[in-house]
């Protein structure tokens, strides 16, 4: 067993875990944060995307032990005080989802794309979400949601720590 200390959505957790525990299972099964989804389990679909120290990663391909000492943001940590993050709001407004399974990962990936490039072209958006699979929408509404989120974030920047 290994002791880890991970700050998730602003709360620091001390846990004793098996070294082979994947970060996604740590978040879901140990901390009860089931917003992060388990999809393909093979680092392809992106449903498990979370931020670790500000970098979007696929949490099915990261050991919880590797996150020791890190700061993690999951979909649950994106909204600030009951107000949706602009990316969440944009996905809502543009219906950037159907079944919703890919949505938490898609939103976390979008947050990273816009953090690095506040004004992405459609091509840059599609390249950015390449690691997130959606089997419902055909991506069109997702791309529109990202474009809308970019506009929103220009006029109302997200809190600095998100």
């Amino acid at each position: 067993m290994k002791k880890i200390s991970v700050t998730v959505n602003g709360t620091t957790h001390q846990s004793e875990i098996e070294p082979r525990l994947l970060l996604v299972h740590y978040l879901r099964d140990v901390l009860g944060l089931t917003g992060t989804h388990v999809g393909c389990e093979t680092s392809l679909c992106g449903a498990c995307t979370v931020m670790v120290d500000g970098q979007a990663v696929k949490s099915c391909t990261v050991l919880a032990a590797q996150a020791d000492g890190s700061t993690v943001t999951t979909i649950e940590g994106l909204a600030a005080g009951g107000t949706l993050h602009p990316v969440q709001q944009a996905f809502w407004e543009h219906h950037g989802l159907q079944c919703g399974y890919c949505t938490p990962g898609m939103i976390m990936a979008t947050a990273q794309i816009l953090q690095r490039n506040p004004d992405p072209s459609e091509e840059e958006i599609r390249h950015g979400i390449e690691g997130n699979l959606c089997r419902c929408t055909g991506y069109q509404h997702i791309v529109q949601a990202v474009q809308c989120a970019a506009k929103k974030m220009k006029s109302q920047p997200a809190p600095a720590n998100r």
Binding site: S43, G46, T49, Q55, A56, V57, K58, T61, V62, A109, Q112, I113, G128, I129, E130, G131, N132
Partner: peptide, 9 residues
């Protein structure tokens, strides 16, 4: 190579 999340890590 891979995708954004893979390239990050």
């Amino acid at each position: 190579l891979g995708d954004m999340q893979v390239r990050n890590k």
